[in-house]
Simulated assay, not measured.
Amino acid sequence: MRQSAKLESQGQKPGRRGVHPALFYGMFALLLGGNAISATGLLMAPDIARLLGGQNELVLSAYEDRLAQMRVEIDRLHSRNYAQAGDINLQLQELSQQQEVLLEQHQLVRALVTKADQLGIAAVATPVSGDMELSMVTTHSGNPDMAATSASVTQMMTETQQAMTGIAVAASERTENIVSELSKLGIALNLPVAPLDGVGGPLLAANEGAAATSPMIEDANAVMQALMLYKAARDSLELAPVHMPITGNFRQSSGYGNRKDPFTGNRAFHSGLDFAAPSGTSVLSAADGVVSFVGERSGYGKVVEVEHGNGLMTRYAHLSGYIAQKGQKVLTGTPIAKVGSTGRSTGPHLHFEVHRADTSLDPKPFLETGKRIIAMLG
């Protein structure tokens, strides 16, 4: 303050201090030196040195080559991933199609098993589970295991196919058994004829867009045909007099053929089977048919006769009373009369005869055949 006042008193103004010239030139020298070092570093870098040396085209070309190689590798990776994804998608699509076939197959099997159950052969077939939803099998990494999943679906399809085959085999075997057993009795079954299977047409190239007939549908139709044949055979069985005409506490008191006559003691022919039973016991029709006679016949006492078709007729004699009327349609097991002791009889019993065209037949093979078939049918 004193110095400023002194300068002001001397007519001089106070001023600012400037940068010392020595310091200024020193800083400038350092700046130049740093730039020189940086320039030397740039020149020592190969790519940059080539750029500064006029070789920029080569450097750019080299970079473009590397970028091109990277693009190829990336495209290759994308292609590989895309291919893998495409395979997975394709496998999933195939599995989805297999699942649709499996579900359709299961519906067919379920319908066939239901029909078989109605006909009494469901126990032979092994129906598959109702839950047919596709369950994706995965690896330990959590990724879908297409092979295992496909194998699982294939196994399920095989099982349903085996179920259909089992139903067809069971139905066919039972049909053949019924036909064979009844043929021994001279009874020919009128089974439906298999549909005509004639095919033909010009040989043309396959049309990829055209729908193809599903082998599964054809298999299911074949199984259903086997079930229908079995049903027809079983229904025809009801027309054959192979069922017992009496139930309850009874015994066979006399057989068919020559025997000692209970009244004369001489050898005589007995045209039927006798079943000893209490008077009033229900007498049942041995098969479906139509009552053709209700009344009395000499030696038989009270009689009911039923026509069954195939030229067969059954006669029920020594009755105490009638239940059915002439012209009445009866089913197997329909009560038609009551056990009695009318006519030439030593006591209450049912005299049962089987006739074909006015000729008596031994009823025993008929009834034994019925027992075998019923045992087979369960």
Rank of each mutant, 00 (worst) to 15 (best):
V193T: 14
S129M: 11
K184E: 12
Q10V: 12
P262Q: 05
D197Y: 08
V179R: 02
R356T: 12
G41L: 15
S141N: 12
L108M: 10
Y230C: 00
K184F: 08
P241A: 00
N190Q: 15
I178C: 03
S214G: 02
E100F: 08
V193L: 08
V290N: 07
L203Y: 10
Q93Y: 09
V199F: 12
S150C: 04
E368W: 07
S282I: 10
Q225I: 00
M216W: 09
I373E: 04
V137I: 15
Q69V: 10
P365L: 02
T332E: 12
L191G: 03
L67Y: 11
Y256T: 00
L43E: 09
S298C: 03
G142A: 04
A68G: 07
G311S: 03
R297W: 10
M1H: 15
E64T: 12
R80H: 09
L189M: 10
N258Q: 14
L239P: 01
R344S: 07
T213G: 06
A83C: 06
L102G: 06
V306H: 01
I187Q: 02
S214Y: 04
I48V: 12
G142C: 03
A233T: 04
R66V: 11
E64P: 01
G255C: 01
S180N: 08
V294N: 02
V169K: 03
S345I: 05
S129W: 14
D131F: 15
I48H: 06
E133H: 09
M44E: 13
G41H: 14
N81T: 13
R66E: 11
G166L: 02
N249L: 06
S253T: 15
G370T: 09
G130Q: 12
L7N: 14
A226W: 02
R66P: 02
Q55S: 09
S61E: 11
F293D: 02
H355I: 09
S183C: 04
S254Y: 04
T314Q: 06
K184W: 09
G41Y: 15
H140G: 08
A233K: 00
V330S: 10
M164N: 09
M156A: 15
E104C: 00
D47V: 13
K364E: 10
H243I: 04
L52K: 03
R110C: 02
R344G: 01
A337H: 04
E305I: 11
G248R: 00
Q105W: 07
A240W: 01
L189S: 05
K260M: 12
H140P: 13
T154W: 12
A276M: 01
L42Q: 08
I88W: 14
V290W: 07
L7E: 14
L273H: 07
H308P: 01
L229S: 07
N266G: 11
K115R: 15
L108C: 00
M376T: 12
T139F: 13
Q98P: 01
S96R: 08
L90Y: 13
F24E: 15
S172N: 12
M132N: 12
A148E: 11
L102T: 08
N258P: 06
A147H: 09
L237D: 02
A22E: 11
M164R: 01
H351K: 00
P262E: 04
I121A: 00
V304P: 05
